[in-house]
């Protein structure tokens, strides 16, 4: 059993986007703060710290998680994916490129979290092999707040990627 005392800083090892990082955290350090300020993953954004806005959404051991509602100590020995792992500015991943094409972001503050949700969602889509309806995309997005876009461009970008994901999974299985 692991027991960590409140006042002390403990060494936490996390794999982020495939690379191993070690940093220090007290038990109450939010995973979002740890990723941002201890490890430097500033693409993890914080908009509410109470698990509603979705800006801090990441993948933790493959599952979507609000990094503001998880403590760094919980993430010891896990693997995390953040927006920094998706694509590079000069070589955007298709999902990111679709966001640019469909003007799915304005200030971009909500965007990293939405991209991570969209990634998980599109992985599901590829597994199931059925294109989502606009309504299903909107339902998925309802776990995020964006104050700039009115969501329209985001919905379009994800629908466009879903088509591709289906096409690809058909191709692979065929």
């Amino acid at each position: 059993m692991t027991i960590l005392a409140r006042e002390q800083r403990h060494s936490i090892t996390v794999k982020v986007n495939g690379l191993r990082y070690t940093g220090m955290a007290t038990p109450r350090t939010l995973l979002a703060d740890f990723l941002r300020h201890e490890l430097g993953f500033k693409g993890v954004h914080v908009g509410c710290e109470h698990a509603v806005c979705g800006a801090c959404t990441i993948l933790l051991d493959g599952l979507l998680a609000r990094a503001c509602a998880i403590y760094a100590v919980q993430a010891d020995d896990t693997s995390v994916e953040t927006v920094e792992g998706l694509g590079k500015p000069e070589a955007l991943a298709p999902l990111q490129a679709a966001f640019q094409e469909h003007h799915a972001l304005q200030c971009g503050f909500c965007t990293p979290g939405i991209l991570m949700s969209a990634k998980a969602f599109l992985d599901d889509v590829a597994t199931v092999g059925v294109a989502p309806t606009e309504q299903q995309v909107r339902e998925m997005l309802s776990g995020h707040l964006c104050r700039c876009t009115g969501y329209d461009g985001i919905v379009k970008a994800i629908l466009a990627c879903a088509e591709q994901a289906i096409g690809k999974s058909r191709h692979e299985s065929g």
Partner: peptide
Amino acid sequence: LPRKEDPALLTGQARFIDD
């Protein structure tokens, strides 16, 4: 024209005040 701002924002490279 697609926006110049986007690549940095889409990859977590844009720098906001808390960064």
